[in-house]
């Protein structure tokens, strides 16, 4: 495997017929794509199927990638549209736990052990649990901004929105996340303050 190549170098190789070079892009971005899809879909099996579809679409459309944006931004745009198409096709509601009733149900399902587990949860688990309680759009914006190395302009491109709208969404998403953490993980938030 060739290393030290940029995404654009790899794309050139693939376009010239080196299909196996595409595996480098798959390996590099599969976790990010999979995570974004999981923000929308509850089932890991469905998410994996959609992720595979995203990479196949990206491969087939490589001829249209003009390099005007980052490859990752282009790929995340395909990811978002594929996710939305999947949800529409399967008539699934957008997986949103942005509602205390649903969270309470999930809480009861886990039984009494959950309370103890929550107490033992690390800060990492707390942050990720709280993100799962957000709406998919809020969770996606936070994921793209903090983990996807996407600027606000790039996120706007991925979501097909204005940069200012994305800025407001990010601000509100962080506010909601903080509120969830303060509500459900009060002790951990106190610890975080000393972090």
């Amino acid at each position: 495997m060739q290393t030290g190549l940029t995404d654009n170098d790899i794309i050139q190789l693939v376009r010239k017929g080196d299909q196996q070079a595409f595996a480098q892009l798959v390996t590099k971005y599969q976790n990010y794509v999979f995570t974004i899809i999981l923000r929308y879909l509850p089932s890991r099996e469905d998410a994996e199927e959609v992720a595979q579809d995203v990479f196949v679409k990206a491969y087939r459309s490589l001829g249209d990638f003009r390099g005007e944006s980052k490859f990752s931004t282009w790929l995340y745009t395909i990811t978002t549209t594929t996710c939305i198409t999947f949800l529409r096709k399967n008539k699934l509601d957008v997986q949103s736990l942005d509602n205390e009733k649903v969270f309470a149900q999930a809480d009861n399902m886990d039984g009494g052990m959950r309370a103890n587990q929550v107490e033992q949860k690390s800060r990492v688990a707390m942050v990720n649990q709280a993100i799962k309680m957000l709406s998919p759009e809020d969770a996606q914006v936070i994921t793209l901004f903090y983990k996807g190395e996407q600027s606000l302009d790039e996120i706007a491109q991925v979501l097909g929105q204005e940069t200012n709208a994305v800025k407001v969404r990010l601000h509100r998403a962080r506010q909601r996340l903080k509120e969830k953490m303060e509500k459900y993980f009060a002790q951990e938030v106190k610890d975080l303050a000393h972090y």
């Binding site: 599969q30 990010y32 999979f34 995570t35 890991r44 595979q52 800060r123 990720n128 903090y146 983990k147």
Partner: peptide, 20 residues
Amino acid sequence: ALHQDIEIDQPSMRFTRNVM
């Protein structure tokens, strides 16, 4: 905390091979 603690999920081990 957000920079450090947000976890990225991983698909199955066979994922890259399936895609290829």
